[in-house]
């Protein structure tokens, strides 16, 4: 290994002074990121400002919009609902999705393609298209308008997402391990609970956290199925924004900042377990 150190030292470092194309590419990325910063930053700045009519920055700094948002919107309740919905969706989608992902990754059986298509479709379709019929059905059976309806609706894209995320993790496990466990007399349940689950913990964490992030941000399905008591933070944010003029813009922005903060905390946690680029393909960084 050490004798080949030179040959394996990876690609050579790029020069700092690059070609015009490099400048163009970096310029585009920096321009994009500056705009994103502007979008997020203007919300944050506005939420702390007293008045902001023209000028680069608001006239003064105040925290009262947060107090106002906290009371007016019943933020505590919204956050509790959001946490409840997300916890239920994550837990249920993992329980349903992981075993299914295992079977789909390992086995071949008649009708597999059809089953796979059924799991792909909810990801390939806009949430509104299946959300409206789903909401109609949920109303018919009395689920919509309360917490269970919101959870059920959010599960629809979450379970396929778990299956897709888990598949590469399951393919990584050597089937010989399961066969060995079988040889030693473990049943299906034991293989699953005592062999596969511990090995799959990284994948389960990754899938769970990604579903969590998506559920907190999932607007359409929650919007279509939520009643007054079962709104999540993002739906309440939408309502207060679309009913402009009723509340001070800064108060809405304060709520948006709280939502952003929640999302960023989740994101920091998520990125400890997931490399965003590794979700689609296994990245080959070191030649074996």
């Amino acid at each position: 290994m050490t004798t080949f150190g030179l040959a394996r030292s990876g690609p050579p470092r790029r020069r700092i002074v690059g070609t015009p194309a490099a400048w163009l590419v970096w310029g585009a990325v920096i321009f994009f990121l500056l705009n994103v910063l502007g979008v997020v930053g203007s919300v944050v700045v506005n939420s702390f400002g007293t008045h902001w009519f023209g000028g680069w920055l608001p006239d003064g700094v105040t925290g009262r919009w947060y107090a106002e948002a906290w009371q007016d919107f019943g933020l505590l309740e919204l956050i509790i609902v959001t946490v409840e919905v997300c916890a239920a969706v994550v837990a249920l989608s993992l329980v349903i999705g992981v075993p299914a992902a295992y079977v789909l990754a390992r086995r071949d059986f008649p009708g597999k393609k059809l089953v796979y298509l059924a799991f792909l479709l909810p990801i390939l379709m806009p949430p509104i298209t299946y959300g409206i019929p789903l909401a109609t059905v949920l109303y018919k059976f009395g689920f919509a308008g309360n917490l269970s309806g919101v959870i059920l609706a959010n599960l629809v894209p979450a379970v396929p997402f778990v299956i897709l995320t888990m598949t590469p993790f399951i393919e990584q496990i050597d089937p010989a391990i399961e066969r060995a466990a079988r040889m030693c007399g473990a049943g299906l349940r034991e293989v699953f609970l005592r062999i596969l689950t511990p090995l799959l913990i990284p994948g389960i964490l990754a899938a769970g956290i990604l579903v969590l992030v998506r559920t907190v941000g999932m607007f359409e399905l929650t919007f279509l199925t939520a009643g007054p008591d079962s709104q999540t933070l993002i739906v309440a944010l939408f309502y207060s924004m679309s009913a402009a003029g009723i509340r001070a813009q800064q108060s809405v922005d304060a709520m948006a900042v709280i939502y952003t903060g929640m999302m960023l905390v989740l994101l920091v946690i998520a990125l400890r377990f997931v490399n965003p680029t590794q979700l689609v393909a296994r990245v080959k960084e070191e030649p074996e």
Partner: peptide, 22 residues
């Protein structure tokens, strides 16, 4: 990559709010 994931996680509603201001 982390910076680029931020807009995805923020979602469309917050992006809209930011765009209105920005």
């Amino acid at each position: 990559t982390i910076l680029l994931v931020v807009p995805i996680t923020l979602g469309t509603v917050l992006t809209a709010e930011g765009l209105l201001n920005y």
